[in-house]
Design a protein around this nucleic acid. Structure first.
Lengths: 124, 124
DNA sequence: CAGAATCCAAGAGGATACTG
DNA sequence: CAGTATCCTCTTGGATTCTG
C-alpha cells in the first residue's frame, strides 16, 4: 500500500466518521425523514418534527443544505415563503438510514434487555 | 390509531434516535468495525483505533457492552487480561453500518463539492 | 495491563427576545 | 413567516495522574 492509498484510506475514514456524526446528531435524520415524505416550509417542518427548537431547526437545515442533502427555495413575498426539499443525494441517503432504523426496531427489545441486565449487575 | 400505537410509535422513534446517537458518536463505530475483524484486548484496541484516548475507549466499550453489542471477558491473572469481542447483535449491526459507510464513500466527492460551493456563496 | 479519578475546554442545544 | 442574536446549561471528549 503506497502513501497515496494511505492518504485515501485516511480521508475516507474521516469522511465516514464525519457523516456518521451528522447522521447521529439529534435532529438531522428526523428532518431528512420528514422531508422524505414531502417538501415542507419552515414552520410546517417545525410542527412536524416534535420538540425541535427554532434555533436547532435553522441550524440543522443549514448543515443539511451545506452538505447538498436538501434544497432551500426562497419566494420573496411578504411574508416570505421558504420551501425545503430533499435533493437526489438526500433521497439516496434516506435509504441506508432506513435500513439502520429497521435494524434498531428489530433489535430494540434485545438492547433494552441488555441494558436492564447490565444495570442490574451494576447495582450489586 | 389508539393510544397504545401512539406510545409504541413514540417509543420506536425515540429508540431509533437513541441508537443513531450511539452510531454517530465519535468512536463507537470505529471500535465496532475493529472488533468486527477480530476480538481484541484493551491496549490492542487502543492501538488499532487511531487517536482514541484511554478514557474514551473505556467509556465507549462500557456503552457498547451495556447495549449488548460487545462482550467483555476478564481473565484474572497478573497482569489482568481483558478480551473484547462483538456479540451476535454487534455483528448484525455492523452490516447496516457498512451500508451507510458505503453510501458515504460513494457520495463524499459530491458532498465536498456541495460544501465548497456553499462556502463560496457564503463568502460573497 | 486495564483501568478509575479529576480537571478542563469546546460544542450542542434550549429559552427568550427581537426583526425584515 | 422565517429567521437572527444572546444567554445559559449540560454533555463530549482530551490530558493528566494514580492504582490493583
Amino acid at each position: 500500500m503506497g502513501d497515496t492509498d494511505l492518504i485515501e484510506a485516511f480521508g475516507a475514514c474521516a469522511a465516514v466518521t464525519d457523516m456518521l456524526s451528522r447522521v447521529g446528531d439529534k435532529w438531522s435524520m428526523q428532518v431528512v425523514m420528514k422531508l422524505g415524505e414531502q417538501p415542507r416550509r419552515f414552520n410546517e417542518l417545525r410542527r412536524a418534527v416534535d420538540g425541535i427548537s427554532q434555533r436547532m431547526l435553522t441550524r440543522t437545515l443549514r448543515n443539511l443544505e451545506r452538505d447538498g442533502l436538501i434544497s432551500r427555495t426562497v419566494t420573496p413575498t411578504v411574508p416570505p415563503r421558504v420551501d425545503y426539499a430533499l435533493t437526489g443525494m438526500g433521497h439516496s441517503l434516506a435509504e441506508p438510514v432506513r435500513r439502520l432504523s429497521h435494524w434498531v426496531l428489530e433489535n430494540r427489545m434485545e438492547i433494552e434487555a441488555a441494558r436492564a441486565e447490565y444495570d442490574r449487575q451494576d447495582a450489586d
